[in-house]
Design a binder for these strands. Sequence first.
DNA 1: ACAAACTCTGTACACTGTAGAGAGAACAGG
DNA 2: CCTGTTCTCTCTACAGTGTACAGAGTTTGT
Lengths: 264, 264
Amino acid sequence: MTYADHTGTGDPRRTIELLWGVRGKPRRGPKPKLTVEEIVTAAIGLADSEGIAALSVRRGAEQLGVSPMSLYTYIPSRAELLDLMMDRVHGELTDPPPSDEWRVTVTILAEDAWEMYHRHPWLLQLTTGRLPLGPHTFAKHERELSAVDAIGLTDLEMDAVVAMVNGFVQGMARGSVESAGLVRRSGMTDVEWWNASAPVLAEIPEADAGLFPLAARIGQSAGEAHGAASAPLHTFRFGLARILDGVEQLVTGEAPGADRELPS
Amino acid sequence: MTYADHTGTGDPRRTIELLWGVRGKPRRGPKPKLTVEEIVTAAIGLADSEGIAALSVRRGAEQLGVSPMSLYTYIPSRAELLDLMMDRVHGELTDPPPSDEWRVTVTILAEDAWEMYHRHPWLLQLTTGRLPLGPHTFAKHERELSAVDAIGLTDLEMDAVVAMVNGFVQGMARGSVESAGLVRRSGMTDVEWWNASAPVLAEIPEADAGLFPLAARIGQSAGEAHGAASAPLHTFRFGLARILDGVEQLVTGEAPGADRELPS
DNA sequence: ACAAACTCTGTACACTGTAGAGAGAACAGG
DNA sequence: CCTGTTCTCTCTACAGTGTACAGAGTTTGT
């Protein structure tokens, strides 16, 4: 992968025009066979079913019945295509039902995003440093901010809370999604993989089981409780609830650790 | 990138033997020019300075003064090399000074990891679904568990808290690291990029500023306060503190949202 | 009719990971 | 010592990648 995973490079004007679907009107030359929308749809389909690595310009063009280089008529480079795909997928998210409990709203938004990442695992492999400045990505951000608006946070705190929840959701979803992907690609469940690995580990004297007593104990407990090495959805919901507990304390002004200084 | 970012595929025995440095003793044939350790060191150096995309087998071999295919004598594939690199880097983490406040310990561990991800940004591009079963990765996990041991959590809660903190750290570090990487690659700071994009957005009638009032207001506030579009370290510390507040409530049994049911 | 503007295609380049075959080196047993 | 085994290392080759560039063909404005 010697090319960009995403933009933030590239001509901002062209990228933004593509994202918002405003076309410089070309009124000469042959009728285009495709539209940008079709290309994005096909690309998302390919990425969903075969992974982002399978989404090559050649494969995409093949699926659309067109020569590879033809796509460059519509899109400056693969990076911009990824921007368009991300913004399109953000459009799958919708406004949550109104609620007077901000916790409920934030939870719904987080779970919606969690599900979106599972429907489109490749999203989490894209660079998120500079989000595409498209309508749906903006709408997502606005929705998230409005969920914590007027609950007693400063502007800066609102910003931080949204960023924190997003970071958490993405971090947890990545683990979940990758683990599911590995099962598919390797044909081995996590448990089978562990069962294949554990005996080998046991043969290695340096890897004395006594060295990592907690890991052994907790691993055992978690495995028995979940029937798997991990239970991502459970952990996600548990963690989100803790985070919201923490935010709630901030709102009500009872943060237990607020006065604690960090050493160093 | 048509190849695996990481293992979990591949012969577990061979991978584990490599990770723990136990060598099947070959006592015939020419003396090896290299060691696995040298290869891993060179690979990490390359990935640190030029990014994971620059770490090709050919580049690595070149740096070591050896032909590309020679590396396959030491390592079954690039995926295993990535495993080895990850475990090696996990070895940079150390035990935190003893403390009787678990919050302090967890905070130090999280900040250490945060820094590690910034030293080695490529870590966050590796698949984390199945961590390498190497000594340092185990030690990291054991350390994290022991930070929340005997503070009043069940085994399952310990597991979930560690997973949640790790997910959070990784999610936030990814944003931070990628934004820094984009600055380097594109030669444009976030602010410059935004300044180049905003006027274009303003020209687009569909992107009416009134559509996203909160995003506009908060963006403004955050920009003024931080002198940048985002302040990752600040957000990271803020979020971590909220998370630990939430965990603390769980420990002391005063979770405000614990009895709330999730709709749907 | 002509030129401009546009879409689309084929070729080409510099890359990627790694399979496979074979050359040469070091040791074990005789 | 010689010979066979086992190991390291190299070369070649293949099927991919994104996309620069040149040119062919089509539609429209004048």
